[in-house]
């Protein structure tokens, strides 16, 4: 036997640790960690740092597990869309069975560990979130209704509620306001993306609003949801999670967001094509900053509280 066949070319089917990590959707995980942490710190009861760290870690693992299950189920459409074609399964680095096994194993692990580190209610909410994202959104709604991301957005909205429940062991209006903030933010965020990633969803046959009801209707919906979101976001400023810092941030951000939604609403496809969807792209980028800064402001209010400065006194 000679070593003439020796090659430096990567061998398919032997995934690296990074490939498995990519299955957990690290970018989504980072958002989950951030919003769950804000929910935990905004709660009126303080948690031991090690318990908080472990609990948030298990929430992140649960979110990653649901991401792996989503990639397993959606491997066929991920292959078609340019945005997702390089994910580990369509790229041939991880097999669908491996992704499913990892997703199921990490789901069970994260829920049990969260029950042990925090409480059973938080673990139950995490289990429901994984079920909602993997089964209700990925397996059922995503391919059957243009309201897919509206209802499916609930999965992404649960982490701050879980964070709050980790600290308090119960739910409250403030926790559900944080839920509502993400829930109502999700549709305009994704519909803006769908407006400028047109062919992707068309090719994959995903019934996005842009495909089923047209782009003008999508623009109307973006404006409507942004108006509701502005009321919610500013209204939250007058509750116990709000305060002067949050309110100033919320008013500024919502004026900018409403302006963006208004511009999108006024445009037609000819104008959008002429500048390569510049307004829609800038609205999408702003939407990321919007959510980050709202939760950052809630965090700031919580951080100022021990010094007698946070909240409304």
């Amino acid at each position: 036997m000679s070593d003439a066949s020796y090659s430096e070319r990567p061998i398919e089917g032997e995934a690296s640790l990074g490939d498995y990590f990519a299955l957990l959707k690290p970018r989504v995980m980072s958002l989950v960690v951030f919003t769950a942490l804000v929910g935990l710190l905004a709660a009126p009861i303080s948690v031991h740092p090690i318990v908080a760290f472990a609990s948030i870690l298990f929430v992140a693992i649960g979110a990653g597990a649901s991401g792996a299950l989503n990639m397993w189920w959606d491997a066929d459409i991920d292959q078609v869309m340019s945005r997702t074609a390089k994910r580990p399964i369509p790229a041939g680095k991880v097999t669908p069975d491996e992704a499913m096994t990892l997703g199921v194993a990490l789901s069970g692990f994260s829920v049990i560990m969260l029950a042990l580190s925090a409480n059973v209610l938080a673990a139950g909410l995490l289990a429901f979130t994984i079920f909602f994202y993997a089964v209700v959104y990925s397996m059922w709604l995503k391919r059957s209704t243009p309201q897919n991301i509206v209802i499916g957005g609930a999965a992404g909205a649960f982490p701050p509620v879980i964070g709050w429940v980790i600290a308090t062991g119960s739910m409250s209006v403030e926790a559900w306001l944080m839920f509502a903030l993400i829930f109502v933010w999700t549709p305009p965020h994704f519909w803006a993306l769908a407006l400028f990633m047109k062919s992707d969803y068309d090719d994959a046959g995903v019934p996005m609003l842009t495909v089923t009801h047209g782009r003008k209707t999508t623009r109307n919906h973006i404006l409507a949801y942004t108006v509701i979101l502005a009321f919610l976001a500013i209204g939250a400023g007058f509750t116990s999670i709000g305060g002067p810092v949050y309110l100033a941030a919320a008013v500024t951000l919502n004026i900018l967001f409403l302006r963006g939604a208004w511009k999108i609403w006024r445009r037609d496809e000819t104008a959008a094509l002429a500048d390569d969807y510049a307004v829609e792209k800038s609205f999408f980028r702003l939407s990321l900053l919007y959510l980050f800064l709202h939760f950052g402001a809630i965090l700031a209010e919580a951080a100022l509280r021990p010094f007698g400065l946070g909240g409304w006194g």
């Binding site: 070593d3 430096e8 032997e14 995934a15 690296s16």
Partner: peptide, 21 residues
């Protein structure tokens, strides 16, 4: 000519094992 050259596959496996450890 050596047959002991380390293949990229071995590096990947080692990385995975160290990571899991």
């Amino acid at each position: 000519m050596s047959l002991r050259a380390e293949h990229e596959l071995h590096q990947r496996r080692r990385g995975r094992n160290v990571g899991v450890g």
